[in-house]
Simulated scan of single mutants.
Amino acid sequence: MTARFRQPATYIMANRRNGTLYTGVTSNLPQRAWQHREGTVEGFTQRYDCKMLVWFEMAETMESAITREKQIKGGSRAKKLALIEGTNPDWTDLYGTIAHG
């Protein structure tokens, strides 16, 4: 795993393009995304099959990642979709870009 991903991150998982979205925060994005993909943690993402990492943003501190998560969760669905499509217009599963190294 690449060291640069062993830092706080805010992320969005989806079950399909324009489908159900889950916003979360973690200190180890590759590990957390893998857990969502494999369904190893019971809860929302397992129930709604949110296995695609469609957006993420690294943060300097966990506090800033949590602040960003709250900002995203407090926003509208349209804002979440715009955030995803601004950097990932094809809704590509970004897991492959973070899982190597």
Rank of each mutant, 00 (worst) to 15 (best):
R4S: 09
R6F: 11
R6C: 10
Q7M: 11
P8K: 03
A9H: 00
A9D: 09
Y11D: 01
M13G: 06
M13I: 04
A14Q: 08
G19M: 02
Y22T: 01
Y22S: 05
T23P: 06
V25H: 00
T26K: 08
Q31C: 11
A33F: 09
W34L: 15
W34V: 12
H36P: 01
R37A: 13
E38F: 04
T40F: 11
E42P: 08
F44L: 09
T45Y: 04
T45P: 03
Y48Q: 10
D49C: 09
K51T: 14
F56I: 00
M58N: 05
M58C: 12
A59G: 04
A59P: 07
E63K: 08
E63A: 15
E63F: 13
S64E: 14
A65E: 00
A65H: 10
I66N: 14
I66R: 15
I72W: 14
G74F: 08
G75R: 10
G75Q: 13
G75K: 05
K80H: 10
K80G: 05
K80R: 10
A82N: 11
E85P: 05
T87Y: 11
T87E: 14
N88S: 09
D90H: 10
T92I: 14
D93W: 00
Y95V: 03
G96T: 03
G96R: 00
G96P: 00
T97P: 02
I98Y: 04
I98A: 03
G101M: 02
